[in-house]
Write a protein that binds this DNA or RNA. Sequence first.
DNA 1: ATCCTCAATAATGTCGACAATTCGGCAAGG
DNA 2: CCTTGCCGAATTGTCGACATTATTGAGGAT
Lengths: 223, 223
Amino acid sequence: MKRRPVRADPYHKLREAIVSGQLHPNERLVEAAIAERIGAGRTAVRAALVRLDQEGLVELERNRGARVRHISDGEALEIEEVRAVLEAMLARRAATRVSAEGLSALRQVMIQMRERVAAGDSIGYSELNATFHQTIWTAAGHPTASRLVAGLKSQGIRFQYQTALRPGRAERSLREHEAIFAALKAHDGDAAEAAMREHLAEVLDTLRWAIDTQHRTARWLPG
Amino acid sequence: MKRRPVRADPYHKLREAIVSGQLHPNERLVEAAIAERIGAGRTAVRAALVRLDQEGLVELERNRGARVRHISDGEALEIEEVRAVLEAMLARRAATRVSAEGLSALRQVMIQMRERVAAGDSIGYSELNATFHQTIWTAAGHPTASRLVAGLKSQGIRFQYQTALRPGRAERSLREHEAIFAALKAHDGDAAEAAMREHLAEVLDTLRWAIDTQHRTARWLPG
DNA sequence: ATCCTCAATAATGTCGACAATTCGGCAAGG
DNA sequence: CCTTGCCGAATTGTCGACATTATTGAGGAT
């Protein structure tokens, strides 16, 4: 009857380590080392690496081991682009299907987001942002699309911290979320899709800005 | 230097067996049996099952083995819905990026499709259909979206045979493809996205028809 | 007759060991 | 000085054996 928590599963441990940035892109993942580090057998680690490879978080080359997959700038833009069209679809669906409880949950998140923006807490806002979007996925009742979007999000997470750094981004993002929330509350599918689309177009722009800024900084501070 | 072909890989063998329908939905996949059947070790089969589980073609339950994942009617519709928005995006992109070679390839496929329709060869047409869409994915130059769409297609493949059975479907489908091709040739992104969207909306309708027909038939021929 | 218990069985999960492969350095040759 | 071939360390790929877990069926109690 003793079922150990999921956190003991090498897959979840490794996944967390990669997504949280403890393991860096292109870092080699030696099976034996990982096995000892997280207290598991090499077999379990191997299975976890296969899953993460299929998921796109790890790159697995035959006879050459595994490494944390490096998501290039261009690929990050692609990911965000796909996320945009999928979330737009989900927003439309959510508008017609969202329950009273769903709207209530969204309202709570909106209230907290306003607080964070007022307090100038960018990273707290960012976390609430994730919650907001996830709530919409749930409301849409579309497991297939939700799975894909969740996977994409985990791949692009490395870039999402940088987008929060843009001046005035939080305030603008908050206004966009208000529009999405209003459309959902009104059960207006067209408006919800349009608002979400506009929001994610902005996110894409911000991402381009972040990438560009990074390049400039790198050029100015060589070595 | 002897590199055995990919077909020897248990993953590809199993995948092919599932997608081609040799292994039926909900059929149990006993590791030892498969290992002997395809001449591989249990370890390799195990790794293949993990990959296929992550891919959505196999369902893996802890301590309870693997079975071919059964895609429900509702899930098939969800898959097609997601495929529609992704392919619409890819069509738009392809319109602005397609090369002369890409257009030439599409033209060739169109010619053959017209032949098949004229000959009343539904399944030959269906195969060309797949080629047509894949060519567009390639032209779009969007690996991230292409990967996702390819994965979705393999999951929904069981239903695609049924859609070809609808009377007059091939002729209508051909006209829709002509519209898509024309938009791509004109490098008109808006038109390409719209044409693809309309096409896949039709496919979705046909899928609903196929599922409905199946249910009626099942009721009329019980047991 | 029905339900419960419990052993028998079959399959999966895990571990250790060994074979196969890659990669680095190093020496010989051009 | 650069290239080529080879050896050895490190790592992955594979196999077999065993432990663990679910399932099944018989037998007995109610």
